[in-house]
């Protein structure tokens, strides 16, 4: 099983670097973060305070756009393109299980998502270099934020793969995944609009991804309950991907 999953992963991961879409995603990512660095933090809004600088870098509007949009852009072609081009026939008539295909593709998508986010280290290096004398970058907090990004990225990558199993059209798959991600994001963020009940508030607050970052990851805390929540979401989305692709691969 591992060998076949590895071959699916290998092909899909290498394929990212053979198409312009990967480079466009990475350049767009760097461009947006560069803008944030220059216009949000650059003029001195953080006032030399590392905490404020990190909150500005990881808590701004563009950061959340990227958290929500990068996984759908990365995963949109993974299964949709197999069905559109007819290579699903080739793939699924080899002695390989649907779960092996899904896991291999998921691993490729997740690793590429992680790679895109690793580019942010360039911005962080700039930020560290521009801190006033005496101030030091808190790399522990950065690591906690990265753990959060990867945890949530793992979940959103699985959602993106599921959307890619639904449609032959990559754009439809991306829009669908982005919509699901937006719903997950908004339900937690605007939970006070849905209910005044304290226990429901508590539940919404637990699933609110923005508060995971503001309350915990941004202050250097990696709460394993949130990581378990992302892992559960990932497992459910991958299970749904196997089922959806199995049911729709030939349609």
């Amino acid at each position: 099983m591992v060998r076949r999953t590895y071959w699916v992963f290998r092909r899909d991961f290498i394929a990212y670097f053979l198409s312009p879409a990967a480079y466009v995603t990475m350049v767009g990512f760097l461009f947006l973060n560069g803008m944030v660095l220059n216009f949000e933090i650059g003029p001195g809004r953080a006032g030399g305070d590392v905490d404020i600088a990190l909150r500005l870098l990881f808590g701004n509007f563009f950061f959340w756009i990227l958290v929500l949009a990068v996984p759908p852009l990365v995963t949109m072609r993974l299964l949709a393109e197999e069905r559109r081009s007819g290579t699903a026939d080739l793939l699924m008539t080899a002695p390989v299980r649907t779960s092996e295909v899904v896991l291999g593709k998921y691993a490729a998508g997740f690793l590429f998502t992680a790679l895109v986010w690793s580019l942010l280290v360039i911005d962080l290096a700039f930020l560290a270099a521009r801190l006033p004398a005496g101030a030091e970058m808190d790399w522990g907090k950065v690591a906690a934020i990265y753990a959060g990004i990867l945890g949530l990225g793992a979940f959103f990558t699985a959602v993106g793969l599921w959307a890619s199993a639904f449609s032959r059209n990559q754009v439809v798959a991306a829009v669908m995944a982005l919509s699901v991600n937006m719903v997950i994001f908004l339900v937690g963020t605007y939970h006070q609009l849905f209910s005044d009940e304290p226990y429901e508030q508590l539940l919404y607050s637990f699933v609110s991804v923005i508060s995971h970052f503001v309350r915990d990851f941004a202050v250097g805390v990696v709460d394993l309950r949130y990581m378990a929540l992302y892992a559960l979401g990932t497992a459910i989305a991958l299970g749904m991907t196997v089922w959806t692709f199995e049911a729709r691969k030939w349609r």
Binding site: R11, A15, G86, T87, L90, T93
Partner: peptide, 15 residues
């Protein structure tokens, strides 16, 4: 069964 079969799909979809 798939281990015993070689299949060439219509239109030869390749990467």
């Amino acid at each position: 069964a798939r281990r015993l079969l070689g299949y060439l799909p219509e239109g030869v979809p390749l990467y």
